[in-house]
Write a protein that binds this DNA or RNA. Structure first.
Lengths: 137, 137
DNA sequence: CTCAAAAGCTCTAGTCTCTAGAGAAATATA
DNA sequence: TATATTTCTCTAGAGACTAGAGCTTTTGAG
């Protein structure tokens, strides 16, 4: 039986965040000590690690909820879980593409800057005038 | 003189968002019509385009505020503006790197999935067991 | 065994960047 | 002129936490 602090240390999820996940229904209400403090089992620890891992991968709380509910029906085909992961992958790829355009844009902006006065600062000019951009964004 | 709706159409910033920016001090309070409606000038439109552009590039409201205040002292050297852009570039590069690791991980997870039962679903297993990951994250 | 420190409890409110809705007033159009 | 659209203010909600107040329980040192 772990205290909430122990659980936090073992999973890397902060204490208030654990309570928040409980409130959001991601983890079930744990047992309590005589003095009403939360006491967690090994199973709780695994569940929380699962959630943490999903969040690290950028899944939303709702997506993780869905995965948990799927994982509780081990007989069903795993198409649902697959779909969630695939959708998320698409998402991630889209974000990468967007950030790369942005990187490009910022590189160009920064490379024009060499400490002259703001009047002709490329950063300011680039922000003011969309026409100076290479790509649409 | 533009109404808030016109300004919104021209800049692509939604009406409530324009009012929000005013509240946050990003744009100054505009003139009002007899009936107390906001009326914007061409200068307001440019300022808003500047903000929009910065937000598109992922700058925070605070960073944009800083840039605006810098741009109001055109005599000073533009080191500050340069710094903001550079810092942001570092940020963007970090995010790209992180997302790429994530893409990799998700690709691996998804490629193992082919519609079998959840019991051996790789998505679920990968989330449950960090050891299945290739990289730390 | 006692007593203070550390950790836990609940509850509320704040973060950031908007977005949505209610209900009233102003403006534009037929 | 009557109606439709837009705008006004104000409040609340989203997502995913984080921080703080004020109180109680547990732990560890003397």
């Amino acid at each position: 039986m772990l205290t909430i602090g122990d659980l936090s240390k073992r999973t890397g999820v902060k204490v208030p965040t654990i309570r928040y996940y409980e409130q959001m229904g991601l983890i079930s209400e744990p047992e309590r000590s005589e003095g009403n403090q939360r006491r967690y089992s090994k199973a709780d620890q695994e569940r929380l690690a699962f959630i943490r891992h999903g969040r690290d991968l950028g899944l939303t709380i709702d997506a993780i909820k869905e995965l948990i509910s799927l994982s509780q029906h081990p007989d069903r085909p795993c198409v649902g879980a697959d779909r969630i992961a695939r959708e998320h992958l698409d998402d991630v790829r889209g974000k990468i593409a967007q950030l790369k355009r942005l990187e490009h844009e910022l590189e160009r902006i920064v490379s024009h800057c060499d400490g002259h006065s703001i009047e002709d600062c490329y950063v300011i000019r680039a922000l003011s005038d969309h026409g100076l951009c290479e790509h649409e964004h």
